[in-house]
Write a protein that binds this DNA or RNA. Structure first.
Lengths: 265, 265
DNA sequence: ATTATATTGTGCAAATATGACACAATAAAT
DNA sequence: ATTTATTGTGTCATATTTGCACAATATAAT
């Protein structure tokens, strides 16, 4: 127990010394599964509320790089789609929900991990956090709690549990942003399996937008983007006409990501 | 001279002690004048490059509040339209352009203002800056250089001077954002005088987008938004048909700001 | 085999939006 | 009275969007 604490103290000591104080990053990592948009959340050992995976910026590290690093640390994946969306700097944010929760965490932290005052103080400062959201292939991840957390799971956004601090607000803003982006960026490459039907794609859009779309027109609209490769048909075993399978044309997809989908004026 | 330095040291001492270290705010304040979109820039006494007006976040202050405070300090105005648009966290950003410029500034700073090492070090740290952009009525402002700057002026965005550090990049991103917002938010309330013609509004849009728009269709499109109040005609003194004057219907404008201008799907 | 069933891919027409241009109305100058 | 420049509105051709129809089709049921 004591030896663990020493180990942890070393870990935290270097974390604190190599990171910028006062700034953090929180990642809203979106995945898609069972027709539901999900986010990767974790639960600290001492807490019942859930948190976003986050981390700190190294002293000699670009903030964007830190976001990529944190994403990779959590999911083992790299995402083309990793987007800064907002910085949360309300003074109350570290206290939201708040003092009690934090006091409890601090006590647990002291007891289990570190009781070095300097380190504790570092964490007790006010943090301004920058939110990034990513789209990843949920099936390629194997979320595991680390030594600080007891759970690490994909959770559907329309069924979110109680969240720590202002993490609910952060997720909400990320979802809003994702919905806006949907209007001018192609989405799906990282959320769907290699081969998928237009129905799959539509379900994804519906899960993100939380509203029903017209089938035939959605299909046309999508195909007109010219970023799909039509493959052989899929025999589903259902007693009806089988749909074509599609895959994303990677280069065209990425071109469209850069150029964006139409803007008037 | 020495007494000035003492005064300045006091000012900076309290600035440093009351502000969060490592975080700053830069404001891209847009105004509109002579058919040109302009930004408020200032020039430090020691420098030829221009800077965005910026500042720091007080220890007990919301970041958004700090942005409003900085905007008001500079322009004396409050803007409904003050929007956080991006946080710049590249490690190179404090060094861009860079070391020489900063060395020069530091020397000047030490000589003219403060040579307290602690204060100098505070400023020499790496800063992560959050950009806000505002739309204000340029004619209601009276930009004056403060004790640190020799100039403070409205400068047209298509005629930008040499800029300090990464401020060029920050302005570019703000302009990009403004253009995107144009697609789904009404704009003009704070940039135009109370009464204006549709031509005025069109010129504003053209100045922002930097492209010509078709007169008659623009007019129709705008009026269809239903956020204008038609007033009496304006006798311009020109030998042609006089245009109607319009003003924004404040409540409808703000409703539309919240709801946004159409989004498909 | 034949029929039933559900879902797909495409067709199509109505409604809506966009873009280019026409033109009468108009305020002032000549 | 005529000229001039600019406005407000009209129109028309061309896209785009939307809603619905319907044949095609893979399997199940008969």
């Amino acid at each position: 127990m004591n030896s663990n604490k020493e180990k942890y103290t070393t870990i935290f000591d270097s974390l604190v010394s190599e990171s910028l104080p006062g700034n953090s990053i929180d990642c809203v990592i979106f995945g898609y599964n069972e027709q539901q948009l999900k986010v990767l959340l974790l639960q600290w050992k001492a807490e019942t509320g859930w948190s976003l995976p986050g981390g700190f910026i190294h002293v000699e590290e670009d903030m964007d790089h830190a976001a990529h690093r944190i994403l990779t640390e959590r999911t083992g994946l790299k995402s083309v789609f990793l987007n800064q969306f907002h910085t949360f700097g309300s003074k109350a944010r570290s206290k939201l929900n708040g003092t009690l929760q934090l006091k409890r965490m601090e006590a647990f932290f002291k007891e289990q991990y570190v009781d070095n005052t300097e380190i504790i103080n570092w964490f007790n400062k006010r943090f301004i956090t920058t939110g990034y959201f990513a789209l990843v292939d949920l099936n390629k991840t194997n979320p595991k709690p680390d030594f600080l957390s007891k759970k690490c799971e994909w959770i559907a956004i329309n069924n979110l549990p109680e969240l720590m601090l202002d993490h609910g607000e952060i997720i909400q803003k990320a979802v809003d942003q994702l919905r806006i982006q949907l209007n001018y960026l192609p989405i799906g490459l990282e959320l769907l399996p290699k081969k998928f039907t237009m129905q799959d794609l539509q379900k994804l859009y519906e899960a993100i937008l939380q509203l029903p779309l017209e089938r035939s027109n959605f299909q046309r609209k999508m195909l007109k983007l010219g970023i799909f490769i039509r493959m052989e048909k899929q025999m589903t075993g259902a007693s009806n006409k089988a749909p074509y399978l599609y895959s994303f044309d990677n280069t065209k997809y990425k071109k469209l990501l850069k150029k964006g989908i139409g803007f008037a004026y």
